[in-house]
Every structure is written in structure tokens, then in C-alpha cells.
Design a protein around this nucleic acid. Sequence first.
DNA 1: AAACCGGGGGC
DNA 2: GCCCCAGGTTT
Length: 373
Amino acid sequence: MSVQAYDDNNRRYFSTELLKWYQREQRDLPWRGSGDPYHIWVSEIMLQQTRVDTVIPYFNRFIERFPTLRHLAEAPEEDVLKHWEGLGYYSRARNLQSAVREVVAEYGAKVPDQKKQISSLKGVGPYTAGAILSIAYNQAEPAVDGNVMRVLSRYFLIEDDIARPATRVSMESLGQSLIPEGEAASFNQALMELGALVCTPKSPSCNTCPVGQHCAAKWESRERELPIKSKAKQPKRVYRLAALIEGTGEHEGQVLVRQRPNTGLLAKMWELPHVEVANEEVWDSLAEGGQWLESELNDQGVAIQVTRHMNEAQHIFTHLIWQVKVVGAVATNEHQLENLEGYAWVGPDQFENFVWPNIFRKLLTDYFKTANP
DNA sequence: AAACCGGGGGC
DNA sequence: GCCCCAGGTTT
């Protein structure tokens, strides 16, 4: 990294001008001001790979329901997941509660202020540890996220691939070296704020940038080339058939749903019973696919007959694309499904008692709307 | 190092 | 359609 080209004057300029800008322009965010390390912790977990505007309403609801570490520690996990519903990366919620329980049990319900301790908590990696230590406790620790790597790579013209872990490590030493004495909390937030508001990915506002005068990338008109990031592999497409099993008799107006496994993708959330099919051709044929769906669910104790094609949906994950076709079905052993482990009947009245991934929330909401207008 | 883990917004 | 977002864990 050719940061040596930058002398101390340039670094001092960067830090002082950035701090001055932040004092003027910082946004008023719900987790700023209270100074409660627990609130800061919750915000940092929610903000992982998630935009500020998305997080704000979730954060307010979450803190209202779980105002302190103890409230969160004592809550049922399902309740926590329900407050995370729609945010994505649900292991964040489970890890957070698990870590909070550890803090209550091992650290007297006080968020630890030592790096080794806080870094050992579930869901707390290098970024989050640095963010909590600096923002909540004003310790001179770096908090290097995507914003910070973008800002630093441009200002110092660093051409390392930011997708490589080694690059983040070197950015951390640079970021730490830039923190002015006693200003860790403001400086780290200022770096991220600049990345979010000014030094944006596509078209940075270099004309209004508080440190643009000494930005190496701007000097060479290369700000749009940075940071350098290798491309991610494109997601694999899979084909799935879901059964919308309509209840009869006492289950009139209800649909059979099931809970996902305790680990992995969308863990513990609810879904329509469904199977993956071998290829697009099987998926396309209602006869072929329907037969496969019937036999697979039958093996799990759910005997059905597929009746008709109903709906289609696509759901894009980071590493996976679900092509989902929904077919209508009737249960031929409805009386035996009552106590089948992991399955339940749900109608509009019970809908909110379950935690749904977005794709099934939408499919079921649409169904109930057309079935009971 | 690469794969896994959600969902949404900007352009 | 592509890229990114106040990343972390597992393999």
C-alpha cells in the first residue's frame, strides 16, 4: 500500500476536516445520543449489510420491546425473531440474543469494554467490536466497514482488492492511525457518514467533499474506479414446487404450513411445504412436478393430491435464486395432520403468530386476499 | 479463500 | 440487471 506517499500533514488535514464536517452535518439517528452501549450494539448488528433507512423503524420497534439487555435476554427467541422479520440474515437476531444472555450471565449485564471479551461474543466480528468500543466507549479502535474502505481507498488511492480479508486488515491499521486523540467515537462515525452521504459508490459528490482538496483519487480523476473489488460468483438457480394445501371442515379457510429446520437458510421460519425438483423441465410440467411433489410430501406424512397451478414467485438470495411455483392441493389424510411435528394450519387470524420469510409472507397474503375477499 | 446467510434500494 | 449496503460464521 502506497500510503507512505502521504505525509503527516495530509493525514492531519483529513482527520481534522472530516471531524469538523461531521460536527456540522451528522444525521440525527435514533441510536445516537443515548450513549447506551446496548443500543449501539443493537444498531450495529442491524446495520450489518443493511441500509440506515431500512434499519430505523426496526431499531425503534426493537428497543421499545426490548429496552435493556435483560429484557432481550429474558424474551422468547420467537419474539426476537418476530421483531427481526423482514430484515434478513436472521442468524444476526439469534446470535445477538445469545450474546446478550452471555453478557447478563458473565458480565453483570454490562456490555464489556475490553476487546478480547467483546470480540468473543456471538455475531461480533472485527467491525462490530471496533464500532462498539469506539462509539460506546470512545476507545481508539478502528471500525472498518464498506464505507470506510471506499473512503480510504479513494483518499489514499489504495488499489488493493477490498474483497480480500487482508485488505480490511491493512485498512484497519490505517484507520486506527488516523483517529485524533480522544475523538474515536466521532471520527469513526464521521468516516462512515462521509461514505454514506458524500463519498458514495457510483457518483461521489467530490465538489462538496470536506477532504476533496487532498483526495488522491480526485486529484487523478479516478474516484469512480475505486475501490477495486473482485466480482462475486453469480447465484445458482434452483426450481421449487410448493403446495398450497387448502383445509376443509374445521380448517376451512386455512392453509397447511411447516417450520424450517433449526439451522441453515431461513432457520426456524415458516413456509409452504415444498420440494426442490431436478430441473426446469420437471418444474414446468404440472403432471410431472405434481407427482414428484405428492410422493416427496407423502414420505413426510403429508398425503395430498395436486389440483391446479396457482402462482409463481422468484426469490433472490445472495448465493441462490429460488424459482417457486405454487400449486393448489387437497390433503387426503387431513385428520392425521393435526399433530404432525413441525406442521400447522394457519388462516388470516393466526398469520401474525408465525415468523415468515418475505417470499412466503407475500404468497400467503395474496392467497388469503383472493380466497377471502 | 470460498461458501453460506436476506432483503431492499439506487441507478 | 448490476452493485452495494455501518459483516459474520463456517468450511
